[in-house]
């Protein structure tokens, strides 16, 4: 059964909205005074801290901005397979493959590396599909959640920027391993790896 709650009619003062407005201004004025005259910001005053003075620390597993990572030897892990570009629902990723005459990869074994890799952070919905699909563990959604910029162009992160923000994430280095295995076989008798 529906319960009808009668609304109390607003009195004259309330209808001018002024008391509510002044109440808000009072809080603002208090913080202003605290910051300007008492030399303390909200973070100091509260100990724990408030955003944005004290950035909010997110838990592990939080899906923030996707960045490219390097391996423990400082080499680009991405091999430009373009699976993330394919899977990305809002088409935020745009990869320029190296082509036949492109720059060789900066790690031996895998012959390929992207010439350019762009993520449009305005399009990204932080879904994590790129990280999930990547066969090279080369892209991870990291802790950054506050991405700002003054222009749209600024929000398109290029390969260099993505790599520098992404840092290092070591791994099994399968291409390096393959190459070492192949080199070992050049010597006779061939050693068995087991």
């Amino acid at each position: 059964m529906a319960i009808v709650v009668d609304r109390k009619p607003l009195n004259f003062a309330e209808r001018t909205y002024l008391p509510a407005l002044l109440g808000g201004l009072k809080v603002t004025a208090k913080h202003f005074a605290n910051t300007v005259f008492k030399g303390g910001n909200a973070a100091k005053l509260t100990g724990e801290g408030y955003y944005p003075e004290v950035p909010w620390r997110v838990e592990d597993g939080y899906r923030g901005a996707p960045y490219l990572v390097k391996d423990q030897d400082g080499a680009t892990k991405c091999v430009s397979c373009q699976l993330c570009e394919f899977v990305c629902p809002p088409k935020a990723i745009r990869i320029t493959p190296p082509g036949p005459n492109g720059q060789p990869a900066d790690r031996s074994g895998a012959e390929k590396m992207p010439e350019e890799f762009e993520i449009n952070m305005l399009r990204c919905i932080f879904c994590g599909l790129c990280q999930e699909v990547c066969p090279e563990e080369a892209i991870f959604l990291q802790q950054d959640y506050s991405l700002t910029g003054l222009t749209r162009d600024e929000m398109i992160y290029d390969k260099e920027k993505l790599l520098s923000l992404g840092g290092v994430a070591g791994g099994i280095q399968k291409w390096k391993h393959k190459l070492e295995e192949a080199r070992e076989q050049e010597v006779f008798p061939v050693k068995s790896s087991t």
Binding site: S80, C81, Q82, E85, F86, P97, P98, G99, P100, G102, E111, K112
Partner: peptide, 12 residues
């Protein structure tokens, strides 16, 4: 193909 090498993934 050397000409098509690393140019584009075929699914695109």
């Amino acid at each position: 193909s050397k000409d098509f090498r690393f140019k584009m993934r075929v699914w695109f």
